[in-house]
Amino acid sequence: MSEELIQIQNTFRFTEENQREFDALIGHYPVKEAAMLPTLHLAQKQAGYVSPAVMTYVAALLEVPLMKVKDVVTFYPMFFEEPVGEYVIRVCHTLPCALRDCKGVLAHLKAKLGTDVASETDLGKGTTPDGKFTLMKVECLASCDVAPVIMVNDDLYKNLTPEKVDEILDNL
């Protein structure tokens, strides 16, 4: 590994609490590589996004090539490679939600937050200048019976109308 890479890697470490959590989860898997997804989620929770430092740290931790980690991170849309807001708002825009006017919900969110919708390669576009919110469209959130839905970080909100959205944002 090059000197530069080691320097980058050294800028990230698990906190003691996360290290304990990692030690616990690594035992659930037959090989270290298999723990890639939970480890990355854990690291993303701590760092906010998967920076090069996080990638190199995880690669060293799991003893896999760096490219394998990069491969996984770019494959899954729930890993962010650039900084995102404190609250990540995912608006479902698959068919049932579309039929129940998710566009209205999205337009309301856009107007209220004053930001555009993020794309997978440019999350900055959907992040408010104060770094508080990131607004993005996602595919099905598996709650079609209660469409339209959004997710704010890990919480799902159902049967939305613009008024309900206001309420949710006020309570954050």
Partner: peptide
């Protein structure tokens, strides 16, 4: 050094890079 980034029809061969394209290896 080589791997696939992204998904489906957006698959690309690449070396590990940071998000802004700086090569890590």
């Amino acid at each position: 050094e080589l791997g696939l980034i992204h998904r489906g029809s957006h698959d690309e061969i690449d070396i590990p890079r940071s998000h802004d394209g700086m090569p890590l290896q």
